[in-house]
Computed example of a mutant assay.
Amino acid sequence: MVPESRKEVRVFAPATVANVACGYDVLGFAIGEPGDEIVARYVDTPGLRIGKITGDNGKLPLEVDRNTAGVAALDLLRHLGMTDRGIELEVHKKMPFGSGLGSSAASAVAGAYAVNKLIGDPLTKKQLLPFAMAGEASADGAWHADNVGPCLLGGIVFIRSNEELDIAQLPAPGNLWAAVVHPELEILTKVARDILPKDIPLENVTQQIGNLGGLLCGLIQEDYELISRSIHDVIAEPRRQKLIPEFYRAKRDAEAAGALGFSISGAGPSCFALCEGEETARRVGQEVSRVFSEVPLENQVFVSKINPRGVHVVGEGASAGDPS
């Protein structure tokens, strides 16, 4: 085991876009902001505790076994046989709840990663995946890595099997940018899942598989035209769009402003556009924001390249001892 090297560590876990239109539950990517921060520190009292939570308006529990960050961190400590260590967590929520940006996943990832860093990096990032997954699952009962995977590892992540947690990172084209717009309304994941059909026509399945394959090939080959032709969801988006006011107007205006494609981030209500270049991404973000503002819906715009780092220690450079 790597020796302990610090008494306190602060980490940042980024928001993520799940599904990416045609990759329902099997594809996701990390963005630059927003994200959650967690501080882990040694304390004299044995055991894991959560000392403080900010930014949650009192919604989140301090009990370790009822908090996504706490569940992930405790699961890790149990695995390592280190539950007697005196460790305190501070959770700083800087993401909206029910936003479709992986808020629960960010807390779970940050909890596991912060404790792993504090005790000296006994596990790699990829080895932390099941512990972070357990934390997220404690919040919504679902077991899918399209938020946790990219939040933990960074970049674009494809999940071959959620049950086996068989995941792979994909290259992000050098000039690929994301514009994410979060309208101020809350959509519960359960509601967004319940609205989906139980049976899907074979024709739609075939089209969705083709789009997913095309998107993966476009990313690998840096073929922006193929990416654009492939970012289409014929299964979830047609049902979920009714939960987001003026969704199709926002989509039309995003594509008119140059977006390669536009869809719903996770269960929504946040929406995302993939774009070639920063200038286009910022223009698309402004257009989508304008549509929601006219509803009227308050909204936030986040523009960034695909985040290659994922969760990391605040203040450390990209090459600073971050095994994956």
Rank of each mutant, 00 (worst) to 15 (best):
F302C: 05
Y224P: 05
K251S: 11
V288G: 02
D253Y: 13
A273D: 06
C217L: 15
L260H: 03
E294P: 01
G315F: 02
Y224H: 09
S270A: 15
L274Y: 07
S265M: 07
S319M: 05
F262C: 12
E278I: 02
H312L: 04
R282N: 07
R249L: 15
G218Q: 01
A257H: 03
S265Y: 04
S270C: 10
G268N: 07
V311N: 02
L260W: 08
S289M: 11
H312R: 14
E222D: 14
L297Y: 03
A236E: 13
P269A: 11
R249A: 08
R309E: 12
Q241W: 06
R309S: 01
I306N: 03
Q300S: 13
N307K: 03
N307T: 03
C271M: 14
N307A: 05
A257I: 05
N307Q: 12
R229D: 12
Y248I: 00
S228K: 12
R290Y: 07
H312M: 01
F302K: 06
G317Q: 02
R249D: 14
G258P: 10
Y224I: 04
Q300W: 06
S319W: 13
K305V: 00
K242T: 14
T280W: 03
K242G: 00
P238A: 09
E287R: 15
V314W: 06
D233A: 06
L215A: 05
E222K: 09
G277Y: 04
E237I: 11
A273P: 04
H312P: 02
I227W: 03
K251M: 06
L226H: 03
N299T: 05
A250N: 07
A318W: 10
I306T: 03
I231Q: 10
A257F: 11
A257E: 14
G268K: 09
Q221W: 00
V284H: 07
L274I: 04
E225T: 14
S293T: 06
E294H: 13
H232I: 10
N299I: 07
F292K: 01
P308D: 09
Q286T: 14
